[in-house]
Design a protein around this nucleic acid. Structure first.
Length: 646
RNA sequence: GGGCCCGUGGCGCAGUCAGGACAGCGCGGCAGCCUCCUAAGUUGUAGGUCGGGGGUUCAAAUCCCCCCGGGCCCGCCA
């Protein structure tokens, strides 16, 4: 049994090419990528444009070279290659479809749920950090993009045979959390209503807005210049608008906050004080903040559970400080030549580090960048986010061979500084194995999502809408389903729509949130692929027991639709490996969509259960079985459920 | 000002790493397909200076240079 049928075909073509090249043009240095999937099936299943290159070297016409090579190639004996053609300078390889089918069906039968999930040459320990949303409000659609991407990456890497751990970094030492804590104190142990993260999100936005208003007013009093005063006035106007919006949401809580913040002579200072007390481990502050953050995380967990996203560990930023790990790292960093005291602050000269360590160890994609210095410790002795992150990554690498960080593109520089700091600490594997999986933001039409301004669409909200919409559809199509099944299916389909919408687009593109985009149930969507899968399941269900896969000579797949589909099905292993190794789930998403396309075209044209002959029926049933397995596996690798009925 | 990313039919995207055969897909438009395995499907059709200009090449959406438009970053914020 060969787990990678198309890969086997490709290998055979490429080895043959190399053998023939060695014979005819021994001096020619073959390129790394010898064959590609041609633009149309009329050019075979794989083709090579190598002869054009050879034409350069030899001065002969590419068509002549192609023909020469073809003659040489045809002398060889193949397992999976049916014929080789030379057309217009190209060499086109045609697969022996029944043989490829036989291998594919065998692999599908033997491997089932792990068909396609070819194991990497060596298994690594990989720590995937994702989501890591600030615990000061609910997960929104932007953080959802992170969570969905991170979860898919973890699944891909796991499928590749790596040992994967999913970590959520709890950023509990930030100003945002301190702001919430401040509000909590002002309210005097308030009763949390509704979902805790949502309630805390409201509290954060309200407190932040009120504090901003207070300090803005103070600054306005001091400003004399007209232009500056106008600017502040505009800002104030905006904040007041947000405030009145917030007041209308929860009047009682808001009014109490308003009164309390006004009674505080310096709210900003109060928040800073909380932050400092927390960093110092003051028991009462610790108790308060831990309680609040845990409350928020409870909300996160609920949302993530609904989304089918799990974590192995929740790493608290504060623990790194209290355990002394941050201090230890600082001591080590101080001993490197890159850390200096500048205006009272301990500073890491990332630029110097890049020049010294970078050229040798940084991967080429990053080049030798212009990096700004990084302050590690403030004048007052407190540490900064990135400092703690260095300690965190040191800890990560004590276990992991590779650390994959799913973090927004806006953190690119910080991630580079982090990498340089790790290199300075002689964590040499950080050079290649600290990977920043950058993704772009999700914006709302016209403006950015902002927790500070309370402008966000929550992940919960999006899921609720998607479930409701999918439920309607399920009810329309399958009224006979039990209520429980309907709900389950609607959840799977709704989530499938959301996840696919996020995964099919390159993470480097800014996406503007729209309900249409996320609630798409039509072609080129999660539900479209799920539907194709469900159709395949339906055929298999009606067919009864599946006979063993027929041998090569009893397979009849001569219709172009069948061939096209089969070739795609045979490709899952190589597509999956590429997606996993390059950390690009979108490759697999695109592929699954293509398989669904081919299957639907096949489905529409060729009957399976009522096929014209027994041979055709058996062959097609295995084709359908393979579709079921391939789509099911692809979807699962992306974190999308594949229902049997919908 | 410096660095990075994005720019492909009206809209949303794939293809760019590794140059190759008529630039793919979806939505929307128009015209069809359910006595036949789920029409969340499918067939056909109209719609494109691949942001612009140079260059390299037998061959450029893809590589190089310049420019334009949009975004992000350049904090003793996180």
């Amino acid at each position: 049994m060969n787990p990678n049928p198309f890969g086997f075909f490709r290998e055979e073509c490429e080895n043959a090419l190399l053998a023939v090249l060695g014979k005819v043009y021994p001096d020619f240095e073959a390129p790394k990528y010898l064959t590609t999937i041609p633009s149309s099936p009329q050019f075979g299943e794989l083709s090579s444009s190598l002869c054009f290159e050879l034409s350069q070297k030899t001065g002969l016409k590419s068509s002549v070279i192609a023909e020469n090579l073809r003659v040489e190639l045809s002398k060889l004996s193949f397992n999976l290659v049916a014929k080789v053609e030379a057309v217009g300078g190209y060499l086109n390889f045609f697969a022996d479809i029944p043989q490829l089918a036989s291998l594919t069906f065998e692999a599908v039968k033997e491997l089932g749920r792990s068909y396609g999930l070819v194991t990497a040459a060596s298994s690594e320990k990989i720590l995937v950090e994702h989501t890591s949303a600030n615990p000061s409000g609910p997960l929104h659609i932007g953080t959802a993009r992170n969570a969905i991407l991170g979860d898919a990456l973890a699944r891909l890497l796991e499928g590749r045979g790596h040992v994967v751990r999913r970590h959520f970094y709890v950023n509990d030492m930030g100003r945002q959390v301190a702001t919430v804590a401040y509000g909590f104190m002002l309210l005097g142990k308030p009763k949390v209503e509704g979902k805790p993260d949502e309630w805390l999100g409201f509290l954060y936005t309200a407190v932040h807005t009120l504090v901003e208003i207070t300090s803005l007013k103070k600054r306005m009093g001091a400003v004399k210049e007209r232009v500056e005063a106008e600017k502040l006035k505009r800002q104030l106007g905006e904040l007041v608008a947000i405030a009145s919006e917030l007041e209308s949401q929860r009047k009682e809580v808001f009014d109490r906050l308003l009164e309390a913040v006004n009674a505080d002579s310096d709210p900003e200072k109060s928040i800073e004080k909380i932050l400092k007390l927390y960093e110092d481990g003051d028991p009462r502050t610790v108790k308060l903040i831990r309680r609040i953050v845990n409350l928020c995380l409870r909300g996160f967990r609920k949302t993530l559970k609904t989304a089918g996203i799990k974590f192995d560990a929740w790493d608290w930023e504060s623990n790194l400080v209290w355990s002394g790990e941050v201090k230890e790292v600082l001591e080590k960093l101080k001993k490197t030549p890159y850390v200096k005291l500048q205006r009272g602050a301990l500073t890491f000269d990332a630029r110097l580090a890049a020049e010294t360590l970078g050229a040798a160890t940084l991967t080429s994609q990053e080049g030798l960048p212009e990096v700004s210095p990084l302050v590690l410790v403030r004048g007052d002795g407190t540490t900064l986010y990135t400092t703690r992150d260095i300690a965190y990554h040191l800890k990560k690498f004590s276990w992991a061979d590779r650390a994959v960080n799913v973090i927004g593109v806006d953190q690119k520089l910080a991630q580079l500084q982090l990498k340089l700091a790790l290199l300075a600490l002689k964590v040499s594997k950080a050079a290649d194995s600290l990977i920043h999986c950058a993704y772009e933001l999700v914006t709302l039409p016209g403006y950015k999502m902002s927790r500070r301004r309370g402008r966000y669409v929550t992940f919960d909200e999006v899921m609720r809408e998607a479930f409701a919409m999918a439920y309607k559809e399920v009810e329309k199509r399958s009224p006979d389903m039990s209520e429980r099944r309907k709900k389950e299916t609607a959840k799977a389909v709704g989530l499938g729509a959301i996840k696919y919408a996020m995964l099919s687009v390159s993470p480097l593109k800014v996406v503007t949130f729209s309900w249409d985009r996320v609630l798409n149930l039509e072609a080129n969507s999660g539900p479209y692929i799920q539907y194709a899968h469900a159709r395949a399941c339906s055929i298999l269900r009606k067919a009864g027991a599946l006979p063993p896969p027929p041998p090569r000579d009893s397979l009849l797949l001569d219709n172009p639709l069948e061939k096209q589909l089969l070739v795609k099905l045979a490709r899952l292993p190589e597509v999956f490996s590429e997606a996993a190794d390059s950390l690009k789930p979108e490759i697999l998403a695109e592929y699954a969509n293509e398989v669904a396309d081919s299957f639907n075209a096949f489905y529409d044209e060729l009957p399976v259960l009522k096929a014209e002959s027994k041979t055709a029926k058996k062959s097609r049933m295995w084709l359908v079985k393979a579709v079921q397995v391939v789509l099911g596996n692809s979807l699962r690798l992306l974190g999308i459920k594949a229902p049997f009925r919908m």
